[in-house]
Nucleic acid binder design. Sequence first.
RNA 1: CGGGGUAUAGCGUAGUCCGGUUAGCGCGCCUGCUUUGGGAGCAGGAGGUCGCAGGUUCGAAUCCUGCUACCCCGACCA
Length: 491
Amino acid sequence: MAKVLTKRSENYAQWYNDLVLKADLAENSSVRGSMVIKPYGYALWEKIQSQLDKMFKDTGHSNAYFPLFIPKSFFSKEASHVEGFAKECAIVTHYRLKNDPDGKGVIVDKDAKLEEELIVRPTSETIIWSTYKNWIQSYRDLPILVNQWANVVRWEMRTRLFLRTAEFLWQEGHTAHATKQEAIDETNQMIDVYSKFASEWMAMPVIIGSKTETERFAGALETYTIEALMQDGKALQSGTSHFLGQNFAKAFDVKFATKEGGLDYVWATSWGVSTRLIGALIMAHSDDNGLVLPPKLAPIQVVIVPIYKGKDEMETIFQAGDKLYNEIKAAGIDVKFDSRDTHKPGYKFAEYELKGVPVRIAIGPRDVANGTVEVARRDTFEKKVYSQEGIVDVINSLLDDIQKNIYNKALKFRGENTYKVDSYEEFKEIIGDKGGFVYAHWDGTAETELKIKEETKATIRCIPIDSEEEEGFCIFSGKPSKRRVLFAKAY
RNA sequence: CGGGGUAUAGCGUAGUCCGGUUAGCGCGCCUGCUUUGGGAGCAGGAGGUCGCAGGUUCGAAUCCUGCUACCCCGACCA
């Protein structure tokens, strides 16, 4: 097989880039830091979207859409929020171009300067809370459970396809509640939704936890995260859910009349996942031959490749292939019959491996004669010949099996790369050497966190919610600690 | 924004030091024939403002000046 990908062991970052390009998911655009998501990559995003959207609706949320542009003044209202995003905002200052009097092309018309600059949203809390102010008067107006699917812009200095781009697609939920407890419950509920999506649909196990103060979302009182371990031993934050307290309600003066006749600020949450999930998916499962996609999210779950010589054979094989296709399609499986006469079977095999199609069916003259097909699975490369009779059942159980298998593989990998350490020496050795998740005691101070980051590049990914109380001593300062936190180098 | 590097066909590159025929090669693309159970073979063909602007020279991909873009490393980050 011709080698088209850099091997993971040679250069992991290069492998990732090669894979995104060669699997036809996305490419760099002529706009610095912004990518073009290609049809195959977008199809993957659509599958992610449709499942998440269903999960949001099942938990009572509705979709809405808020403006791309946010008046600059809105940003100044919540102090820590401004601080968090100010350094990476794109700003619209003018609204008109004119022909360059000195020659060719167009220039900004200086006379068309905006009274107030507009910020291209890096996130929508401010525009949404300025709107919610008008929506909320009474406890009867609450809760508000809204989600929006949108693009956002964060002017990143260094970008990587899907993992960090200047513009990216995401979903942001913004909810308003009458009580603190209700908002906290919402925050927890949504991080659970993300965790469930990651493990059951992406086949990617995650650790749920809360962020330390330094890593917390700008403007939040509490940030929950799901952290996944990538094959190179680095952690990837894959989704976040924030308990915003009354910060935004106070900043935008959103009060409501309580049942008891009082007046109180509204409690808020926000939560989001982005196209970064595609990066997570790639790095969690794929191998040196290409993508490995979980069947539940694969744009093409099954591909049928015909094998034939000459026109006569082609006709027979295509007939048999069409029959198979219709049968599988009727069972609700996303199947593709590759009828291209311009490429040979070997080429197609390699191509679908690169694209991570979970199941491949080959059908040729031998199969037509015997009433069989050759079925190959992407995760293990195992090939088996089955009778065409009852093939749908075979495929269904195979898809289930692949979904489970890649989850278990990822879980096993995480298990093998998770460590408990009690000394800073050991900590540095593991972080510096192979990476992975490291559970260690921490004294709870930002100073220690920062020092460890400076010396080892590892950060506290989260304080796991299921961590047990355990007496110990901070690996850095030696001060007493009550529980272990999760350290790793992160994307 | 600091440090380093690169720019030649759709992609990857040779040529640049030391200026001199028609800028070479691989992949891909097009046409034809033979092929088709793991990335086909042969034959023919198309495709280039050598990043942009200026300068030196009889002559510039090659030397000089300025600009632009991109890549890698750092600080920042879903």
